[in-house]
Each structure stands twice: as structure tokens, then as C-alpha cells.
């Protein structure tokens, strides 16, 4: 494949995803809503991801604290460790790590699930039986990921900060009150709101990419694997691109 063809394919793919997204906004948002399936997906996507997100967030908070500590000690500002860790977790580490874990777990499962449904012609069967597959399968999942990822991020941040508190207490002693006060004294709405807003986009990106890859899966069982894999890869890359855009936009708005 020459570079031109690859570039054309890339553009084709991008266009298809854009169309798919447009279809979500045109079809998915209109009634009637599939409440039951939406809550079911929320349970699967949100609640079932919490242990994994919680574990990674806890470890991340603890490790980040212990890694930052020596350089802060070098500068003699060890007391500012909670401030630094708190800001890092709330502004960047929490949302991105949570979104990446989320992409790994949910993006792949959505891609594989929808892909196998597509391959086994279940989606076609749904169309025949009068259920709109896009509404039932895609809209519910995308909405669920979009709304669940911010919640997971907030919970993950909390667990991460607790891990950071333990991390501070490994080498020195800080009361929980002081740690809490220090973290929240440094935090402002300009730290929290952009961070939570961008997780909405992360969640949306994970959901839409997973659904698109699954929905357009081909070539039998092999295609299911490919669509699951590419869903994770693409959504992870998109998370970083959105993160980059988010930081630029907050900078432009003067919220940084």
C-alpha cells in the first residue's frame, strides 16, 4: 500500500467516524429512549469498572507521591508535597489515567461485543425485528460512557488522593486534616471544572470509537479481534489528542 492510499484510507476512516458521530447526534438523541438498556450499560460500564479504576488510581496516587518526594526534598519544600500531588492528580493524572484504563476495558469490550453481533448478523436480525440497532446498541453505550467516565474520574481522584495521603505518610507524618486542607487550599474551580469537562469528551470518544469499530466490523471472527484492538488504540490516541485540545482551550479561556 502506498502512502497515498494509506492516507486516503485514513481520511475515509475519519470521515466515517465523523458521519457515525453525526448519526449519533441526529438519531441517538431523539426519543424514544431505551432507558432499561441505558441503565444496564451504565451498570456494566460504570459500576463494573470501578474496582479496576480504583486500584490503578490508588497505586497512581501512592507512586506519584513517592516519586515526587525526593525532588521536593531537594528544594526543601517537602511540606508542599500534598499541594503538588493534589494538583497533579486532579488536573491531569486522574482524568487521563482513568480514561486510558476505561478505554482499555470498555472500548475493547464494546468493540468486541458489537463486532461479534455484527459478524453473527444479530444486528441485522434486530433491524428485521423492528428494534433500531443504532438507538438500542450505540446511543445507550455512548451516553453511558460519556456520563460514567466523569463519575469514575471523580471517584478515582478521591481514591488517588487517599493513596497520596498514605504515600506522604510512608516517609513523614501528616494528619489527614492538614493534607486535606492543603490539597483543597491549592485547588480552584479552574482546576476542577476543565478536568471534569474533558472527561466527558474522553468518555464520548471511547464510546463512539468502540461502537464505530464494532458496528463496522468485518471478516468474521478475526474482524472482531481487529475491531476490539483498534477501538482501544484509537480511543487511547484520541484521549491524548482531546487532552491536548482541552489544555489549549483552557489556556485560551484564561482558566489555567
Amino acid at each position: 500500500m502506498s502512502l497515498v492510499i494509506r492516507f486516503k484510507n485514513f481520511l475515509d476512516e475519519t470521515g466515517n467516524i465523523a458521519r457515525f458521530t453525526g448519526r449519533f447526534f441526529s438519531v441517538g438523541i431523539k426519543p424514544r429512549y431505551e432507558h432499561k438498556e441505558f441503565f444496564n450499560q451504565c451498570y456494566i460500564i460504570g459500576y463494573r469498572s470501578l474496582p479496576l479504576v480504583g486500584l490503578t488510581a490508588f497505586i497512581m496516587g501512592l507512586v506519584l507521591t513517592m516519586q515526587l518526594r525526593p525532588s521536593l526534598v531537594d528544594y526543601g519544600v517537602e511540606s508542599q508535597l500534598p499541594v503538588m500531588v493534589g494538583l497533579a492528580i486532579v488536573r491531569e493524572i486522574g482524568p487521563v489515567i482513568t480514561a486510558l484504563i476505561f478505554a482499555g476495558k470498555i472500548g475493547s469490550s464494546i468493540g468486541a461485543e458489537l463486532g461479534s453481533m455484527k459478524v453473527t448478523e444479530q444486528i441485522d436480525a434486530m433491524t428485521v425485528s423492528g428494534i433500531k440497532p443504532f438507538k438500542y446498541l450505540v446511543a445507550t453505550r455512548v451516553l453511558a460512557t460519556t456520563l460514567m467516565l466523569p463519575l469514575l474520574t471523580i471517584l478515582g481522584d478521591a481514591i488517588s488522593l487517599f493513596g497520596a495521603y498514605l504515600g506522604v505518610n510512608i516517609r513523614s507524618v501528616t494528619s489527614f486534616d492538614l493534607f486535606f486542607l492543603q490539597v483543597f487550599k491549592s485547588l480552584d474551580f479552574s482546576d476542577v471544572l476543565p478536568a471534569i469537562t474533558k472527561t466527558l469528551f474522553f468518555g464520548f470518544a471511547v464510546g463512539i470509537v468502540g461502537c464505530y469499530k464494532g458496528f463496522n466490523s468485518t471478516k468474521g471472527t478475526q474482524g472482531v479481534g481487529i475491531s476490539a484492538n483498534s477501538a482501544v488504540v484509537l480511543s487511547s490516541v484520541l484521549i491524548f489528542i482531546i487532552d491536548l485540545l482541552a489544555v489549549q482551550i483552557t489556556e485560551l479561556l484564561g482558566l489555567n
Binding site: 459500576y47 466523569p150 471517584l155 471534569i196
Partner: peptide, 13 residues
């Protein structure tokens, strides 16, 4: 379970 999860997240926020 989902309700508890969503509530705890919202309360924290």
C-alpha cells in the same frame, strides 16, 4: 449498585 455508584460520585463532586 449503579445508583450507589452514581450518587457517591456526584456527592464527592
Amino acid at each position: 449498585k449503579l445508583g450507589a455508584f452514581v450518587l457517591s460520585g456526584l456527592v464527592l463532586m
